[in-house]
Amino acid sequence: MIKKQRAFLKWAGGKFKLVDAIVRHLPAGQRLVEPFVGAGSVFLNTDYPNYLLCDINKDLIEMYRIVQKDPEHFIGLAGELFVAANNDSDFYYETRKRFNAATDPLDRALGFLYLNRHGFNGLCRYNRKGSFNVPFGSYKKPYFPEAEIRGFSLKSQNAEFACIGYEQAFALLKQEDVVYCDPPYAPLSTTASFTTYVGAGFSLDDQAILARNSRHTAFEKGIPVVISNHDIPLTRELYRGAKLEVISVQRNISQKGASRKKVDELIAFYDAVESSGNVIQMLQRA
Rank of each mutant, 00 (worst) to 15 (best):
K3D: 12
R6Y: 11
A7C: 12
F8C: 07
L9A: 10
K10A: 05
K15D: 12
I22A: 11
V23D: 10
R24H: 13
H25Q: 14
L26H: 06
P27E: 09
G29H: 01
V33Y: 05
V33D: 09
E34Y: 05
P35G: 08
P35D: 09
F36A: 07
F36Q: 07
V37D: 12
G38I: 01
A39C: 13
A39I: 01
G40D: 09
S41P: 07
S41L: 03
V42Y: 07
V42A: 11
L44T: 03
D47T: 10
Y48S: 04
Y48F: 15
Y51L: 04
L52C: 03
L53T: 06
I56C: 15
I56W: 04
K58R: 14
D59Q: 01
I61Q: 09
I61E: 13
Q68K: 15
K69R: 13
P71L: 01
F74H: 03
F74G: 02
I75E: 07
L77H: 13
L81A: 06
V83H: 00
V83Y: 00
N86M: 07
N87M: 06
N87W: 12
F91M: 01
Y92D: 02
Y93V: 01
E94R: 15
K97M: 11
K97S: 15
R98W: 05
N100F: 09
A101W: 01
T103K: 15
T103Q: 12
L106Y: 04
L106F: 01
D107V: 07
G111N: 11
F112E: 01
L113G: 11
L115K: 02
L123S: 04
C124R: 04
K129V: 07
G130L: 07
N133G: 04
N133K: 05
V134K: 11
P135A: 09
P135C: 11
F136P: 00
F136H: 01
G137Q: 08
G137Y: 10
S138Y: 13
K140C: 01
K141S: 15
K141P: 06
P142A: 09
Y143S: 02
P145I: 04
E148N: 12
G151P: 00
Q157N: 12
Q157H: 09
Q157D: 06
Q157F: 05
E160T: 09
I164M: 14
Y166P: 03
Q168H: 07
L173N: 02
Q175Y: 00
E176I: 00
V179S: 05
C181K: 08
Y185P: 11
P187I: 05
T190I: 05
T190Q: 15
A192G: 04
S193K: 12
T195C: 12
Y197K: 04
V198I: 14
G199C: 08
A200N: 13
F202L: 06
S203H: 03
D205K: 13
D206A: 06
D206K: 03
H216T: 06
A218F: 02
A218P: 00
E220S: 06
I227W: 08
S228L: 09
N229R: 04
T235Y: 05
R236K: 08
R236I: 07
Y239T: 11
R240D: 13
L244T: 10
L244F: 08
Q250K: 14
Q250T: 00
Q255C: 07
Q255M: 09
A258G: 00
K261H: 06
K261F: 02
D264Q: 14
D264I: 02
F269T: 04
F269E: 08
F269L: 12
Y270D: 03
D271V: 00
V273A: 14
G277R: 15
N278Q: 11
I280E: 14
M282K: 13
L283N: 07
Q284S: 11
